[in-house]
Computed example of a mutant assay.
Amino acid sequence: MAVTADPHLSQEETLMYAHASPAWTGSGLSFTGLGHYYPRTVVRHHDGIEVAGRTYHQEEIDELGVHSLHRAEEDETVEFMAARAATAALGKAGREPGEIDLLVLANWTDRQWIPELAPAVAASIGAAEALAFDVCGACTGFVHAVQIASAMLTADPSARRAVVVAADRFTRRARIGTRGQLVFGDAAGAVVLEKGDPETGGLRDSILACDASEADTVAARDGWLRPKPELIDLAVRSSLSVAERLLERNQLKVSDIQWLVPHPGNNAIHTGVRDGLDLPGEKFVTNFADRGNTGCASIPIALSEYTESGRLRPGDLVLSTAVGSGWYYGGLLYQL
């Protein structure tokens, strides 16, 4: 793949970035367990569904692209969902909670002053002595948390493994009467990130960048999500920028990856990213139609769900991209 013009970087910066070394190749870091949690209540969209006095018919539902989603009940807090996803990931990794050195929780929908939510999650799963803290980054939160956990595990020789959890109750950020009520869902996803043999595959590279000039493209200053009309174009450009930079830096072509598992925004963004990468449709993997846009949880729940079903398999090379309020844009390149 040739180095292309990147709206976020100068030509000199683009060339320097393309020739930089991948962040995590040779680190021995890998995802050894995946887990997810979906709330009990499933909301199914059907022809003639009414939202705040407006009726949506099947063609509009098909255009939105979400046919069902999960809505958390009052007892299904972020901590509750995160703990269950983390426990599931630990089980898949064959690890006990006491073996965890670090727990990083990504969440943006239920932020509070103090205390942070991550320590409660760590205590709930039986890992009370793990260093636990929250990160945000909106829908890039999973990428943000994986990158921070990777850096901390690499910097500390005594630390061996981390649980990275992403949990959002996105339904609570949809303004009443808007289409967001038909798109935003609740969920939690988790991975166990471990140091192992440097010669094996695993986590290869990551990017997390910020363009503050676009910070208000999507915001929730009053609690309700407020996207601007230019969101779709910006999300597509940013996602393509991330994908191109990660592939270029790792000397790969789009055809070299088995799957693109992105943060799903909406059908228009999906189409723009697929077309921009010239990616075969069967390589584009989301559970958007059945789960909706679940914020920062969207990538790990898809990884967990589709690995469990057998669609994604050990050794597959995966690229994940995400964009979010900030304006943050980032991605991960890894083998399962």
Rank of each mutant, 00 (worst) to 15 (best):
T171S: 15
L252S: 02
W224M: 13
K92P: 02
P314L: 09
G177E: 15
F142I: 08
T109F: 03
L240E: 01
P39C: 11
L240S: 01
G185Q: 05
R160F: 09
K283I: 02
D110K: 14
V236G: 01
N250D: 11
E116F: 15
G272S: 11
I125L: 10
G28C: 08
T14V: 03
E50A: 15
H270R: 10
A302G: 04
W327G: 00
G201D: 12
E13L: 08
L319M: 11
T200P: 11
V236P: 00
H270T: 03
R204P: 07
T77C: 11
S206V: 02
D156Y: 09
A89T: 05
P97K: 07
L260I: 00
I269L: 09
V254R: 00
E59I: 12
W24D: 08
A155T: 10
T41L: 14
A289C: 11
A243I: 01
L312W: 03
L64M: 14
E59C: 06
L90H: 05
A106D: 09
A82I: 04
G180F: 09
F133S: 03
P229S: 15
Q181F: 04
H70P: 01
E116K: 07
D278I: 00
A122C: 09
A85Y: 04
R226F: 06
A93K: 04
D110C: 12
A159W: 14
I61E: 14
N267G: 12
K253A: 09
L182C: 06
L29N: 10
A83S: 15
A220I: 12
E79C: 10
G265P: 00
M81I: 06
D290G: 06
L252A: 05
V273M: 07
R175Q: 14
R221N: 11
D110V: 10
L260W: 03
P300R: 07
P157W: 06
E74L: 13
S206Y: 05
G330R: 00
A128Y: 11
N107F: 00
G137H: 01
L332Y: 02
C296F: 01
A322V: 11
L102V: 07
D233G: 12
L333F: 02
D6T: 00
K195L: 07
R161A: 13
A155Q: 13
L29F: 10
L193H: 05
R161L: 12
V164Q: 05
G272V: 04
Y334R: 04
N287P: 04
A188P: 00
L279M: 08
R173T: 15
D6W: 00
T271M: 09
A151F: 07
L117A: 11
T217I: 10
L153A: 05
T178L: 01
L90W: 02
Q251C: 09
V66G: 08
E96R: 12
Q251A: 12
A106F: 04
E96L: 12
S213H: 12
E63C: 11
E96V: 07
